[in-house]
Amino acid sequence: MRKHIHPVSRPVVFRDRAAGTAFLTRSTVDTARTVVWEDGALYPLVDVEVSAASHPFFTGGTRVVDTAGRVERFERRYGRRGPSRG
């Protein structure tokens, strides 16, 4: 078997910013941020937007989406156009 062709797998902490939870698992992701975990050891840290702790499918809840802000941002970026002719 060829050596040095696979990425290094190590323990990494993933923190869900929406739910405020974190979990320790193995990953090959590379990050410069670190955090001290519950066992007192220092682990690489990856912040994620959504995990099973905050995703509506797993929580059974709904998530408020700022659609008005998205529309306004789109109109600012691309300008408001008049009615289409056709």
Rank of each mutant, 00 (worst) to 15 (best):
D30C: 13
D30A: 15
T31P: 01
T31E: 03
T31Y: 01
T31G: 07
T31Q: 03
A32I: 08
A32C: 02
A32L: 08
A32S: 12
A32E: 09
A32K: 11
A32T: 13
A32G: 07
R33W: 00
R33P: 00
R33Q: 10
R33K: 10
T34F: 10
T34K: 13
T34N: 08
T34L: 04
T34W: 04
V35W: 02
V35T: 12
V35P: 00
V35A: 04
V35H: 00
V36P: 00
W37I: 03
W37C: 08
E38S: 13
E38W: 14
E38N: 12
D39S: 08
D39I: 09
G40K: 06
G40A: 03
G40L: 05
A41Q: 15
A41K: 15
A41P: 02
L42C: 13
L42K: 15
L42S: 15
L42E: 15
Y43V: 08
Y43T: 04
Y43L: 09
Y43Q: 04
L45Q: 04
L45W: 01
L45S: 03
L45H: 06
L45C: 06
L45D: 01
L45A: 05
V46Y: 04
V46N: 02
V46I: 14
V46Q: 07
D47H: 12
D47L: 13
D47W: 10
D47N: 14
D47K: 04
D47F: 12
D47A: 08
V48P: 09
V48N: 06
V48S: 06
E49R: 11
E49V: 14
E49F: 10
E49I: 09
E49G: 11
E49S: 12
E49D: 15
E49H: 11
V50L: 14
V50Y: 14
V50N: 12
V50M: 14
S51T: 10
S51G: 09
S51Y: 00
A52R: 12
A53D: 14
A53W: 01
A53V: 00
A53K: 01
A53Q: 05
A53S: 13
S54Q: 02
S54V: 02
S54A: 03
S54T: 01
H55Q: 06
H55S: 12
H55W: 08
H55N: 11
H55F: 11
P56N: 03
P56F: 05
P56Q: 00
P56R: 00
F57C: 05
F57N: 07
F58M: 03
F58P: 00
T59A: 07
T59P: 08
T59G: 08
G60Y: 03
G60E: 05
G60N: 07
G61Q: 13
G61Y: 04
G61E: 13
G61P: 09
G61D: 13
G61R: 14
G61I: 01
